Amino acid sequence: VSEWTEYKTADGKTYYYNNRTWESTWEKPQ
């Protein structure tokens, strides 16, 4: 699942961004 990158927002929430599909999600990808 290497295309997903984990980021943190300014208020400390974690989200995930897909470099291949430009998708972002709050849930941890499978």
Rank of each mutant, 00 (worst) to 15 (best):
Glu27Arg: 07
Ala10Ile: 08
Glu6Phe: 05
Gly12Lys: 03
Lys8Val: 13
Lys8Tyr: 13
Glu27Val: 13
Lys13Met: 11
Glu3Asp: 14
Glu6Gln: 12
Thr21Trp: 10
Thr5Gln: 09
Thr9Ile: 00
Tyr15Arg: 03
Lys13His: 11
Lys28Gly: 07
Glu6Lys: 04
Pro29Leu: 09
Glu23Phe: 04
Gln30His: 12
Glu6Trp: 05
Tyr7Asp: 03
Glu27Asp: 12
Arg20Phe: 15
Ala10Gly: 09
Trp26His: 07
Lys13Arg: 15
Tyr7Thr: 09
Lys28Asp: 12
Lys28Met: 10
Arg20Thr: 15
Lys28Phe: 13
Ser2Leu: 11
Ser2Lys: 04
Lys13Leu: 12
Val1Asp: 14
Glu23Arg: 01
Gly12Ala: 00
Val1Gly: 12
Pro29His: 05
Arg20Gln: 15
Trp4Gln: 04
Ser24Met: 15
Asp11Ala: 06
Lys28Glu: 08
Asn18Thr: 03
Lys28Val: 12
Ser24Lys: 13
Tyr16Glu: 04
Thr25Arg: 11
Asn19Thr: 12
Thr5Val: 12
Thr21Pro: 01
Asp11Thr: 06
Glu23Ile: 03
Gly12Pro: 01
Gln30Glu: 14
Val1Tyr: 15
Ser2Asp: 14
Trp22Glu: 15
Glu3Ala: 08
Ser2Ile: 10
Val1Ala: 13
Tyr15Gln: 01
Trp22Gly: 15
Tyr7Trp: 05
Arg20Tyr: 15
Trp22Phe: 14
Thr21Ala: 04
Tyr15Ile: 04
Val1Arg: 05
Ser2Gly: 14
Ala10Met: 12
Ala10Leu: 13
Ser24Ala: 13
Asn19Ile: 11
Thr25Ala: 11
Lys8Pro: 03
Lys28Ile: 14
Tyr17Val: 15
Lys8Leu: 08
Gln30Leu: 14
Trp4Pro: 02
Trp26Lys: 02
Lys28Thr: 11
Asn18His: 04
Trp22Leu: 14
Tyr7Pro: 00
Thr5Glu: 07
Tyr7Glu: 06
Lys8His: 09
Trp4Glu: 00
Lys8Phe: 11
Tyr16Ser: 03
Arg20Pro: 12
Glu3Ser: 01
Thr5Phe: 07
Gln30Arg: 03
Glu3Val: 01
Glu27Phe: 09
Trp22His: 15
Tyr7Ile: 12
Asn18Arg: 00
Asp11Gln: 04
Gly12Met: 00
Tyr16Thr: 01
Trp26Asn: 14
Tyr7Val: 13
Gln30Ala: 12
Trp26Tyr: 13
Glu3Thr: 06
Glu6Thr: 08
Tyr7Ser: 02
Thr21Gly: 06
Glu23His: 04
Ser2Thr: 13
Val1Glu: 14
Lys28Trp: 10
Ser24Tyr: 13
Gly12Arg: 00
Lys28Ser: 11
Gln30Tyr: 05
Trp26Phe: 07
Trp22Asp: 15
Thr14Ser: 11
Asn19Val: 08
Thr9Gln: 08
